[in-house]
Amino acid sequence: MANVKEVEEPKKPVPVFSMIRGMGMLGKNLLRKPVTIQYPEQMPYIPERFRFRIFLTLDSCVGCTLCEQVCPNGSIKMEHLDRENPHNKRKIYPGVNFGTCTVCRNCEEICPTHAIYLSHEFQTSRTKNSFYYSPEELSKPEHEVLK
């Protein structure tokens, strides 16, 4: 075989002195800056494409149920909502259970009218059993849906 690299076994270190050198290598890190990010005060690095919470534009949803079909684990359930929308004759809109949502972005990709999309919002703490967002709650920003 052409590209096989025989890895040599490293040499046996000198018993005591190598340990002292190893401790010195640790000591170098005393002078380096800590990498901790103190979360509530400092925000971690959030790139432009970072995605978490699903939003819904009620006016452009056509009720095609594609998002419900493509959702891998059934987190999206269509729900009846009495609302005037000429495009949505059946009056069904998606509701999302964030307890099981895996943020796979399939619903965003499949939506023909870009009604359902994911956003940067990730601070969505909830009590137990209140992870389900109805279509109306999905269309509101996070601070208005506090339960």
């Binding site: 075989m1 590209n3 096989v4 690299k5 025989e6 890895v7 076994e9 490293p10």
Partner: peptide, 22 residues
């Protein structure tokens, strides 16, 4: 792409360690 396959003849835990680092 050009890369080598690291191989060690020793077969002990240390060899696995070294191979992974390579």
């Amino acid at each position: 792409v050009n890369f080598d396959v690291p191989v060690s003849q020793k077969g002990d835990v240390l060899a696995r360690f070294v191979v992974r680092f390579e």
